[in-house]
């Protein structure tokens, strides 16, 4: 399986990076991290699913609302590489899931030792971040558009 964070690296370089990681099994319904937790490692999904949620106030209660689901090959927890190193979402496994956890210090040390690997990982990470930004931007624009339409319709009815 090809990990999006390691695209463009040679198989030796991929092995080198994966060797730094720690394989973890998250049980079904288990939590990987919570919003606000210190983010000192990011995760590569190997098997299963990781569900990202965001707390939303619904009827006066805080409920975890679905944001995104990550499948094998995808990266979770890039907040570990971006200051202030705090998770901005919560992550749970809806089914038993295997991930590879990469410590920030270890990964950064490898990138300093091997700038080519570092540059490639940096580019791949920017793709992951940009993809989230572009998706959220489009979704937000569509929601605003709908809100304006609804408000205009209500104002027209009131007239």
């Amino acid at each position: 399986m090809e990990h999006e964070l390691l695209k463009g690296l040679s198989s030796d370089e991929v092995e080198q990076v994966l060797a730094l990681g720690k394989r973890m099994k998250v049980p079904s319904g288990g939590s990987l991290f919570r919003l606000g937790d210190s983010a000192d490692r990011l995760f590569l999904v190997e098997r299963g699913r990781i569900r990202l949620t965001f707390p939303m106030l619904i009827r006066g209660h805080e409920e975890e609302v679905f944001i995104e689901e990550k499948s094998p090959g995808q990266t979770v927890g890039w907040s570990a590489l971006v200051p202030p190193y705090r998770f901005t979402l919560s992550a749970t496994a809806p089914l038993e899931t295997d991930v590879i956890a990469l410590q920030r210090e270890t990964l950064c040390a490898l990138c300093e030792r091997s700038p080519v690997v570092g540059a490639r990982i940096g580019l791949n990470l920017s793709f992951v971040v940009a993809q989230r930004l572009q998706l959220v931007q489009a979704m937000w624009m569509r929601e605003i558009e709908r809100t304006v339409e609804m408000k205009s319709a209500v104002a027209a009815e009131a007239r």
């Binding site: 939303m56 609302v65 679905f66 944001i67 995104e68 572009q134 998706l135 959220v136 489009a138 979704m139 569509r142 929601e143």
Partner: peptide, 13 residues
Amino acid sequence: IENHIRLEQAAAE
């Protein structure tokens, strides 16, 4: 809400 977000995400993708 989840179904709505999934559909909107697909549209955004």
